[in-house]
Design a protein around this nucleic acid. Structure first.
Lengths: 138, 138
DNA sequence: CGCACATAGTTGCTTTTTGCAAGCACTCAT
DNA sequence: ATGAGTGCTTGCAAAAAGCAACTATGTGCG
């Protein structure tokens, strides 16, 4: 059973956002799709962060239920499910990019490339759009 | 005992950010300081979201340990601790504002004012600076 | 068909975290 | 000195996360 729905529903936007993706793993999945091009269960599972498979299955269910991602069958391999961001999910890209900016500034061991950072700094909206269309073209 | 330090340390900026404030409560505290002007334990405790006091104490410890907030005594009332954002914490304001934008768009019951949203849309950086200086002037 | 393998999960169990109610310690005001 | 305000801690129950093993279904190939 998926995590019980205990949304706070106080009208606060931060509470709303955290109820949707404010846990240790949801945003990681969104990152995998948006920035790493991941699309399948196996790709989400095999990241350095090592999510437990039951938690992964649970989060995929929740994110789909919340309309952040959508699931479809890979026409070329019926074993695979293809997960992708919905419009609502794509709208989280700016949030992700701001987090990248912040972490790049404060993580001494960051692996964020200067060129990536430059793109965010110089044209945030444009870069977000670029990522979106890259996702659409797959 | 504070939550054990189990940072993932994979070099990924999203993992880094989530390790710092990626839980149900940390960002709520940051919101309280940045957007609601909260500064004391009691103010953090008495929000509609009803954080448990042990979790609150734990998060305040963690956020301080991570250099996001700092703690000082209220000179006018020695019973009170004043919590405020450090520079590192203030740099999270853009992340918070992007989350507000997203939630305002997708939460049908949002309480975000149109005027607040307009400020974000029209001059994001300027608005972030405005919030920062408002915090400094207290 | 029949079998090995790939992919995507589920299940059962342990550990960790959260939630909740009560209580403690220090400070202030009188 | 006392009682109330503020900021916590403690102990215990409930929920979630982590872990390892197992199941289910589709694919490719002899």
């Amino acid at each position: 059973m998926a995590t019980a729905d205990k949304k706070r529903n106080t009208g606060c936007p931060i509470a709303f956002a955290l109820d949707t993706f404010g846990d240790r793993w949801s945003l990681m999945i969104i990152r995998d799709i948006a920035l790493r091009g991941s699309r399948t269960y196996g790709e989400f599972r095999d990241t350095p962060e090592k999510i437990a498979t039951n938690v992964l299955a649970d989060r995929l269910r929740e994110l789909e239920a919340d309309g952040i991602i959508q699931k479809s069958r890979d026409p070329e391999n019926q074993r695979k499910n293809i997960y992708s961001l919905t419009e609502k999910g794509c709208d989280l890209i700016p949030v992700v990019l701001e987090m990248v900016r912040w972490s790049a500034k404060y993580d001494r061991t960051t692996k964020v490339k200067a060129s990536f950072l430059d793109k965010i700094e110089s044209d945030r909206e444009g870069f977000a759009m670029e990522i979106r269309s890259r996702l659409k073209d797959r």
